[in-house]
Amino acid sequence: MPDNANRIVSTILEGLPFTVIAAVGGIALTIVLSLAAGLALLSRSRAVRVIARVYVEGLRGTSEVVQLFWLYFALPALVGLQLVPLYAGILVLGLNHGAYGAEIVRGAVRAVPRSQVEGALALSFTPAQRMRRVVLPQAFVEMLPPFGNLFIQLLKSTALLSFIQVTEIVQRGEQLRPTHGADLPFIYVVELLLYLVLALVITAVMRLLERAACRRIGREPVRNRFLGGVG
């Protein structure tokens, strides 16, 4: 461990709050957009479906870096509104992963057996009640594992925010690089370990949610792969 290990660690740790805020904000936005776009993809209205489809394919079809640069460097020139880097980052993280999440929501809703909808229909639930009370709670369980993976992807994507000078973990590390050439291995190990810990936190939270959700519908939770033997 290098002599100035303390200084390096504390500098990189200063970036941690920004990484966490970006990830949490991005995840929150992802959840909202995934639900909205996912249900819109299943709408009876063709217009609504088309709009949702354009959003999903447009965001999945372009690179996240391009989206970030476009929002941060190009959009201000068009509308005269300069976004704070962190907000621009959260917006892109949410918009991008929301497009992937929309497909997760759509798939999970469609996987709920038709007989459940008929059971709800026979009890005269309205379409909205059928979705909210019967279909979504069951689809929710199916969504959790893929959403867990999506959130890990999102966490990894927060590193892109260093491209627009958000002082998150990677950006802090890069600030150290010119003057700490000999300590580079240490710097990157610290960064990687922080991401690993954050990823484990996300996995653990998702695992808890999954267990609770499985219990709610009286099903045995499935074991996850990562550290699956222990959990």
Binding site: K156, G173, L184, P185, L196, A199
Partner: peptide, 23 residues
């Protein structure tokens, strides 16, 4: 495999580009 999948590609690129030559 789990480590690589849980950490950002960007940092892995840096490691490969900046650390591997000296190390």
């Amino acid at each position: 495999i789990e480590f690589v999948r849980s950490t950002p590609l960007l940092v892995q690129i840096f490691v490969l580009y900046y650390v591997f030559p000296s190390a």
